[in-house]
Lab assay of single mutants.
Amino acid sequence: VTTYKLVINGKTLKGETTTKAVDAETAEKAFKQYANDNGVDGVWTYDDATKTFTVTEMV
């Protein structure tokens, strides 16, 4: 189990959260659900070296 981080660069919501998951795919599903629940829709990137997902909403 690995800890993954999500950085949110939203128009109205900004911040970070973490989740523990067995792999990046599982973490991504959890983060996308979290973003969807919070009304964040944007471009996703993932950095495997730092285990960090970033979602950026276009203005």
Rank of each mutant, 00 (worst) to 15 (best):
T2K: 11
T2I: 10
T3D: 12
T3P: 05
Y4M: 01
K5W: 06
L6D: 00
V7L: 07
V7F: 10
I8N: 01
I8T: 04
I8W: 15
I8E: 01
N9L: 14
N9R: 10
N9Q: 09
G10E: 03
G10H: 12
G10C: 06
G10K: 05
G10P: 03
K11G: 08
K11C: 05
T12L: 15
T12R: 02
T12V: 15
T12D: 14
L13G: 08
K14F: 10
K14P: 14
K14E: 13
K14T: 11
E16C: 04
T18W: 14
T18V: 10
T18F: 11
T19Y: 14
T19D: 03
T19G: 04
A21D: 03
V22Q: 14
V22A: 10
V22M: 10
V22N: 10
D23I: 03
D23A: 05
A24H: 11
A24Q: 12
A24C: 04
E25D: 15
T26F: 09
E28L: 14
E28A: 11
E28H: 15
K29P: 02
K29E: 11
K29G: 07
K32Q: 08
K32C: 04
K32L: 13
Q33W: 05
Q33R: 09
Q33V: 10
Y34D: 02
Y34S: 02
Y34C: 03
A35N: 08
A35Q: 02
A35G: 04
A35P: 01
N36E: 15
N36F: 07
D37N: 11
D37I: 11
N38Q: 13
G39W: 07
V40I: 15
V40E: 02
V40R: 02
D41C: 05
D41L: 14
D41M: 07
G42W: 04
G42Q: 02
G42K: 01
V43L: 11
V43E: 13
W44F: 05
W44R: 00
W44E: 00
T45G: 08
T45V: 07
Y46N: 01
Y46V: 01
D47F: 04
D47I: 07
D47A: 05
D47W: 04
D48N: 13
D48L: 07
A49W: 12
A49E: 09
A49V: 12
T50E: 08
T50K: 13
T50F: 06
K51Y: 12
K51F: 09
T52V: 08
T52K: 05
T52R: 04
F53W: 11
F53C: 01
T54W: 11
T54S: 05
T54C: 04
V55N: 01
V55A: 03
T56Q: 09
E57D: 06
M58E: 10
M58A: 13
V59C: 05
V59M: 09
